[in-house]
């Protein structure tokens, strides 16, 4: 469960107004809003990359507002993916598990499982250089899911993809949602994405966040 209680974020002259929001465990929520309203800032605050000026962030009932990003157990896929240039696809999938010092057998099994679900088994030995947009997106998603996070944050994951790849990724996200049941907050500008994936939809406006009936408009 993700719960925000009067969360306010300040960054230079930009101020994200007090946000209160609750997403139940296993729900797939979509966050929409006009550009520059602070959707990415909100995601970064939830995963601990941006300091919160006021309010509380609770993950499964625990106040994680002052926790470091690594302790929050949140999978995050940023808009630019931020893949690691010096690692192979396999090393991306293994990264979080190695940091957690999981056993080699567990890492191998999870990597196999993820690469099979994401359809990137044939890319495991490849460097990320030269991967297509869709392939990179799958690697970033696999990296975020590898340590079985309880919460997944996706920042416009399909925005830079062509129509065919977007459709494939769309289906993939739906499968991930069904198979993992991970609580997800997905930032998008696409009404179609929100209609087909979301259980709930939120709209970030100047005065704050509002829940809107599907589809968001």
């Amino acid at each position: 469960m993700i719960e925000l209680r009067n969360v306010s974020v300040k960054s230079g002259s930009f101020v994200l107004p007090r946000i209160s929001l609750q997403i139940e465990s296993g729900e797939y929520a979509v966050l929409m809003g006009t550009t520059g309203r602070g959707k990415t800032t909100l995601l970064e605050s939830i995963c601990g990359l941006r300091r919160v000026a006021e309010g509380q962030i609770l993950i499964h009932g625990r106040d994680v507002t002052r926790w470091s990003p690594g302790d929050r157990e949140i999978g995050y896929v940023p808009q630019d993916l931020a893949l690691f240039p010096t690692l192979t696809v396999r090393e991306h999938l293994e990264f979080a598990m190695r940091i957690r010092k999981m056993s080699a057998a567990v890492i191998a099994a999870r990597t196999q499982e993820l690469s099979s679900v994401l359809g990137i088994g044939h890319l495991l030995t490849r460097s990320i250089t030269g991967l297509s947009g869709g392939e990179s997106q799958r690697v970033a998603l696999g990296r975020a899911l590898s340590f079985r996070p309880s919460v997944l944050l996706l920042d416009e994951p399909l925005s830079a993809l062509d129509e065919t790849t977007r459709h494939e990724m769309h289906e993939l996200l739906r499968r991930v949602k069904q198979s993992t049941g991970v609580t997800t907050l997905h930032v998008t500008h696409s009404v179609a994405e929100s209609e087909s994936l979301a259980d709930r939809c939120f709209w970030l406006a100047e005065e704050g966040i509002q829940e809107r009936p599907l589809a968001c408009r």
């Binding site: 470091s68 929050r72 999978g75 990264f95 979080a96 940091i99």
Partner: peptide
Amino acid sequence: MNPRAEEVARTLGCTRGQAFWQIALPQ
């Protein structure tokens, strides 16, 4: 270098030191 990769590494469980050592330094 894009600092975003180090930030993502921190969400994956790295401390700042690990993000520097494993992501920034090799780059």
